[in-house]
Design a protein around this nucleic acid. Structure first.
Length: 678
RNA sequence: GCGCCCGUAGCUCAGUCCGGAUAGAGCGUUAGCCUCCGGAGCUAAAGGUCCCGCGUUCGAAUCGCGGCGGGCGCACCA
């Protein structure tokens, strides 16, 4: 019989604890805490329950712990319960059988019912992506990887606001500042990645838009009368069937294609691109409006400063209590609809509650955007079908989208208020369960460290000079409007330069394989950097820190795995058996350090579960790092190929195998590619 | 003003949900380690009023209250 897994051991111990405490003291434990002791010598799992009981029972914790340890019926797989410290009950696992079971491939997670939708990235398709967008996409992508690993069916959506103010502003700039006023001219600019008045931009059309957007912002500030351009363009887009609308469509399609390439090179793929224009054309809002009006959740304001607006009344809601003006306007007095209103309609659709659907068509991105070469996109991303909502027709063989059981919206903390409004909207419509399963995956922004901001403003000149207030701040927020920010592809480029240099130092010749490895390292470094911080932490971006490959970094994790692979390669070369003998593993006495590494490696599923539960993905990154650290020590102290003692070699082999498999899995979950050599 | 987040080593951060064992990493600094499964590594040293105060507790970085410093949000913007 297979030895219990760590998860099963914990469950068994919790149960036994509950029973024992109930029998001894007639106390029902609410929960049983089982933690890892600070040192492995103290045991494998520790329960501090005696401390909690001490007061009520008027006995010393140590005495209680002793009684519990003596009375406890040990579940299968646990060798011993003993008292440690001031009153911990510590448990020792049956080491041999546990390690032997770890050598078997772990069974896949059981499928869990109900589709999960994760919405992430959501970059306005009007300029190149920056590193803040990268944090969003990487968090969303790792959440998806973890959910799938845990057995969920996941649908990935990347919402495109193709009719919003930001696209309108760039289109206004192209028309009025750059003389790109026809669809033909716009297509030519996109194709050639240049504007008539400027030299070609090697990094592609999205980079051009970055500059145009900033230029428009400056023009609006300098000549306020030009702000009328925005309203004109927005109106034209809304009307449709005119040159301006066609330019806008071409721009947003080209830029979003560039975004897919930028994310694609990092291993990030999407299932569906819902477009705001389709939400409008399909009259999603009209449908949502009916629901909201009928339910009484929304009312037409007759007087006061909101007179003439349709308002979601939030004054009675506890969550919004204490706010000066809690009510949220959904339809303005001029009849136009706010973004939040559209978001409520979209959220209803995600749960299949709206009663209307989109049409869908395949979207085939142009994987080379100028900043990215198609060859950089991993096959898994290139071959993954991407669908988008269709303006008309649609394809009959499209899969079914929406109708989720749970929805995660990955979006930064500044959107907490509108996200709360969206959820409250569902609740007011009576969809309490769906509201409870609408999760705002909130995280802090990526800002620029003062040093990074200075570097940028020096590089790009006076237009980006920091204001005196900004100089004093601990970090500077990036601003697409001002053009101040680190573009995602520029950072990847810097990382690639660095990793190529490092690889070149270690190789005889540049080959296809060495370049692939350099890419893997650059991607690994970037993804890990964005994941290692807690989600509530502002990342004050620093160039040196981001391109570091030593210590607490992605390449450190990759290196540990490559080293494990090297062990097995070397064994094959020397014709030494590389497959551990399971019976010997099960029967062996396990020394602390080898055992400790095996135990650490066994907790992937637990850690992933906790990461998803708390939406704190940094715990997964941290776990991978501590595991890599433990392995690097092991690697140093416990040679395998040169170990003459067959029994000892067998134990080390077992640990190395287990590590290799679990670290590969962890990197997969983190989306960090595995280089062949380092 | 109200709400949310952050404050731990020179710097960047874990640990706070669920109070417990000597508060841990990485970078940087200093001193070591390649005839070895390749040093993107390993070993060691130095480095701490856990922002402050009060409270709860046998016990507080962790919980509560009150401050201080910083960030963000509270649009007929998104």
């Amino acid at each position: 019989m297979r030895a219990p897994t760590l998860v099963e051991l914990r469950a068994g111990l919790a149960l036994a604890m509950r029973d024992t405490v109930a029998a001894l003291y007639s106390v029902e434990l609410e929960r049983v805490v089982l933690e890892r002791p600070p040192r492995i010598a103290l045991g494998d799992l520790a329960c501090p329950v005696a401390f909690d009981l001490a007061k009520g029972l008027r006995q010393a914790p140590r005495a209680i712990a002793a009684q519990i340890a003596a009375a406890l019926r040990l579940p299968a797989g646990i060798r011993e319960a003993r008292v440690e410290g001031g009153g911990y009950v510590n448990f020792a696992i049956e080491r041999g059988p546990f390690v032997a079971a770890l050598l078997e491939p772990s069974p896949p997670s059981l499928p869990r019912p109900g589709k999960v939708i994760v919405e992430h990235t959501n970059i306005n398709p009007n300029k190149a992506a920056h590193i803040g967008h990268l944090r969003n996409a990487v968090l969303g992508d790792v959440l998806i990887r973890c959910l799938r690993f845990l057995g969920y069916t996941v649908e990935v959506q990347n919402y495109l606001d193709d009719t919003g103010v930001q696209v309108a502003d760039v289109v206004a700039g192209l028309i009025h500042l750059e003389g790109v006023a026809t669809l033909e001219a716009a297509r030519e600019s996109i194709r050639a990645a240049r504007l008539p008045s400027r030299p070609p931009e090697p990094k592609g059309f999205a980079y051009i838009c970055w500059d145009v957007y900033a230029e428009v912002g400056r023009t609006y500030a300098a000549r306020p009368e030009t702000q009328a351009w925005r309203a004109e363009v927005l109106h034209a887009i809304e009307q449709g069937d005119n040159e301006t609308a066609r330019i806008a469509a071409a721009v947003s399609e080209a830029v979003s294609s560039a975004h897919l390439s930028t994310m694609g090179r990092l291993g990030i793929a999407y299932d569906l691109l819902p477009r705001e224009s389709d939400i409008l054309h399909r009259q999603f809002w009209t449908r949502a409006f009916d629901l909201l009006e009928k339910s009484g959740a929304m009312a037409l304001e007759q007087e006061g400063k909101h007179a003439g607006c349709w308002v979601l009344r939030l004054s009675e809601s506890e969550e919004f209590a204490g706010m000066e003006e809690p009510d949220k306007i959904l339809v303005r007095s001029n009849g136009t609809v706010t973004y939040t209103a559209k978001d409520i309609a979209y959220q209803l659709w995600k749960f299949g509650l709206l009663g209307v659907d989109f049409d869908y068509e395949r979207f085939r991105p142009d994987w080379s955007s100028g900043a990215v070469e198609a060859s950089e996109i991993p096959a898994a991303v290139r071959e993954h079908p991407v669908w988008r909502t269709a303006h008309s027709g649609g394809e009959p063989d499209a899969p079914s989208f929406g109708r989720a059981a749970r929805v995660y919206n990955v979006i930064d903390v500044r959107q907490s208020y509108p996200q709360k409004v969206v959820r409250e909207g569902l609740r007011r419509l009576g969809f309490q369960a769906e509201a409870d399963r609408s999760e705002h995956f909130s995280y802090e922004i990526v800002a620029l460290s003062p040093k990074a901001a200075r570097d940028l403003s020096e590089r790009f000149g006076d237009e980006y000079r920091l204001t005196p207030e900004e100089e004093k701040k601990p970090f500077v927020e990036m601003s697409g409007r001002k053009g101040l920010g680190v573009k995602a592809d520029d950072l990847v480029e810097m990382l690639l330069d660095r990793s190529r240099r490092e690889v070149a130092q270690r190789r005889e010749a540049e080959t296809e394989a060495s370049d692939q490895d350099a890419r893997a390292i650059a991607v690994g470094a970037l993804r890990y950097f964005l994941l290692k911080f807690g989600r509530n932490k502002v990342i004050a971006f620093d160039f040196d820190e981001a391109v570091n490959f030593e210590g607490d970094t992605g390449p450190y994790l990759q290196y540990s795995l490559v080293r494990a692979e090297n062990i097995f390669r070397k064994l094959e070369e020397r014709k030494i058996p590389s497959e551990p003998t399971v019976e010997a593993v099960a029967a062996a006495e396990w020394e602390e350090d080898l055992w400790s590494l095996a135990l650490d490696a066994a907790s992937t599923a637990e850690v992933a579960e906790r990461a998803v539960e708390s939406l704190e993905l940094s715990t997964l990154a941290r776990h991978a790092f501590t595991l890599a650290q433990a392995f690097n020590q092991f690697y140093h102290r416990h040679p395998i190929a040169n170990e003459p003692d067959a029994a000892l070699r067998n134990r080390r082999l077992a640990v190395a195998r287990i590590f290799r498999r679990e670290m590969a899995l962890l990197l997969e979950l983190l989306g960090i590619p595995e280089p062949g050599r380092m």
